[in-house]
Design a protein around this nucleic acid. Structure first.
Lengths: 223, 223
DNA sequence: CTGCAAAGCGGACCCCGGTCCGCATTGTGT
DNA sequence: ACACAATGCGGACCGGGGTCCGCTTTGCAG
C-alpha cells in the first residue's frame, strides 16, 4: 500500500523540504487539522477562508480567481498558496467541515449510517447520505475536483473508499472489494451527479433509487 | 435530452458563431470526420497530428506544450486551437483512430464483441477489449481527460455509454440501465485504471476479473 | 486568367495558477 | 528586555492555455 509521489516521470530527488500545506497525504480521520500555526498565520487562514466562502457564494466557484481571494482577504497571493497548496486545496478546505461531519456520521454515528446495522443496510444509508451531501453544494464539489489523476489519492476519497470496502468485505466476502468499492463510489462522483441532474434532468430521488438498486444487486440483498 | 452549453453561470449571449473545430457535439459514429477542409487546412492538420504524436511519444504527453506542437509542425499557435479547439481536442484526435477501431468492433464486428452473442457475454467482451485498449496508451488517455465536467458529454464516452446501456436493457430490463451503464463504465475510467495499476500495483488480469465479476453480479449471470 | 468573398492563418496578447526569494513578524531562550 | 532563529509574508515573475484580429491563401465564378 504505497501511496507515494504519483507524478508520472518527476524526479523524486528533493522531496521539497518546505511544505506546510495541511495534512499532506495522510488519512484525515476527523480531528487532526490546524497543527498550531503562528498567530498571524492562523488569522490569515481564517480571513482567507471567509473571503473565499464569500466570493464563491457571491459569484460561483469557478468565477473566482486565487488573486481575488488573496486581495479580498487583504493578503498576498503567495500566502494563499503557502497555506493551501493550490486551488484545489483551498476549495477542499471550504468543504472540509461538512465532509468531516459526514465522516463522523458513518464512522461513529448512530445506525443505520454508523456501526450497528448490517453492512448492506449501512451501504444503502451511506449512499443516501453522501448523495444528499453532495447535492447540497454540488458546484463547489465540482470545482474542487482535482486533475483526474489525483482524485483517488485525496484524503476524503480515501476515507470513503476504505469505509465502503470494509462494508463490502462483510457483505460479499468472495468479491474483489477494493475494486468494487471504487465502482460503487463512482456513482457518487460529483461530476456524474451533475451530469445526470443538470444535463439529463434526473431528479435526486432517481439517483438514490439507483444507488439502492446497485447495492442490492451487488450484495445479493433484496432490500 | 438537451446537451447544451453547461458552463455554470456563463452568459450564453453569443453562441460563438465561428466554431469549425471538429464534430462539435454530435455522436461520432465512426465515419464522419474531416468535413472537407481547404487544402492548406488539411495539410496543416496532418502536420500537426504528426508533430504532436512525435512529441508525445518522445517526451510524454503532459510534458508537451501546445506552442511546441505548433512550432514542430511549422504553423502558428492559433492554427492548433482553430483546428482542435483546445488541448483536450488535440489529444483526443490523437486517440481517435484506435477509439474508432474499438467502436467498429463492438458495433458491428464479430461476436462475442459484436452483435450475435447474448448481452451478458457481449458486456464481458466489451470490458476486456476496452480495458486492453486503455492500457495500451494509458498516458495519453490520462492526459486527454478533460475537466471533470465534460467527461460524460464527450463523443467517445457517449458512444460507449449508449452501447452499454443498450446491452444492459436486454440483460436486466428491470434496472435503471442509464445510470447503471455509467457505473459500469466507471470501472474502465483511465484515471482509475492508472491508480489501480500504477499506485496500487494491481496486474491487468485482476482488473479484467473484477470487470467480469461485476457484470456477473449485475446481470445475475454466473458464468 | 482574374477578381473577390470566404476560409484560414499566425503571433501578439491576456489571464491565471503557481513559484521564488528577499524582507518582516513572531515567539523563545537567556 | 533583547537577540536571533524560524516561520511566514507578499508581490514580482514565469509558463502555458486560450483568444483576437489584421493579413494571406484558396478556390470558385465569370
Amino acid at each position: 500500500m504505497l501511496y507515494a509521489g504519483f507524478m508520472s516521470a518527476a524526479p523524486p530527488s528533493a522531496p521539497t523540504p518546505q511544505e506546510p500545506v495541511e495534512s499532506p497525504q495522510l488519512l484525515q480521520l476527523g480531528l487532526d487539522d490546524e497543527p498550531c500555526l503562528r498567530a498571524d498565520a492562523a488569522r490569515n487562514r481564517a480571513r482567507l477562508l471567509e473571503a473565499a466562502a464569500g466570493l464563491v457564494a457571491a459569484r460561483g466557484a469557478d468565477a473566482v480567481t486565487m488573486e481575488e481571494v488573496a486581495a479580498a482577504a487583504g493578503v498576498g497571493k503567495g500566502t494563499v498558496f503557502r497555506r493551501f497548496g493550490d486551488r484545489t486545496g483551498l476549495l477542499m478546505a471550504l468543504l472540509d467541515h461538512s465532509e468531516k461531519k459526514l465522516q463522523a456520521a458513518f464512522l461513529s454515528g448512530p445506525p443505520p449510517l454508523g456501526p450497528g446495522a448490517p453492512p448492506a443496510e449501512r451501504l444503502r444509508a451511506f449512499g443516501r447520505a453522501a448523495l444528499r451531501r453532495t447535492v447540497e453544494d454540488l458546484e463547489l464539489q465540482l470545482a474542487a475536483e482535482a486533475d483526474p489523476g489525483r482524485r483517488f489519492t485525496l484524503p476524503p476519497y480515501r476515507v470513503r473508499h476504505h469505509h465502503v470496502a470494509l462494508l463490502l468485505r462483510q457483505a460479499v466476502p468472495d468479491a474483489d472489494c477494493d475494486v468494487l468499492a471504487h465502482t460503487l463510489l463512482a456513482q457518487l462522483d460529483p461530476a456524474l451527479i451533475h451530469h445526470l441532474m443538470h444535463q439529463c434532468g434526473m431528479p435526486p430521488q432517481r439517483l438514490e433509487d439507483a444507488w439502492t438498486d446497485l447495492v442490492d444487486r451487488i450484495t445479493g440483498t433484496t432490500a
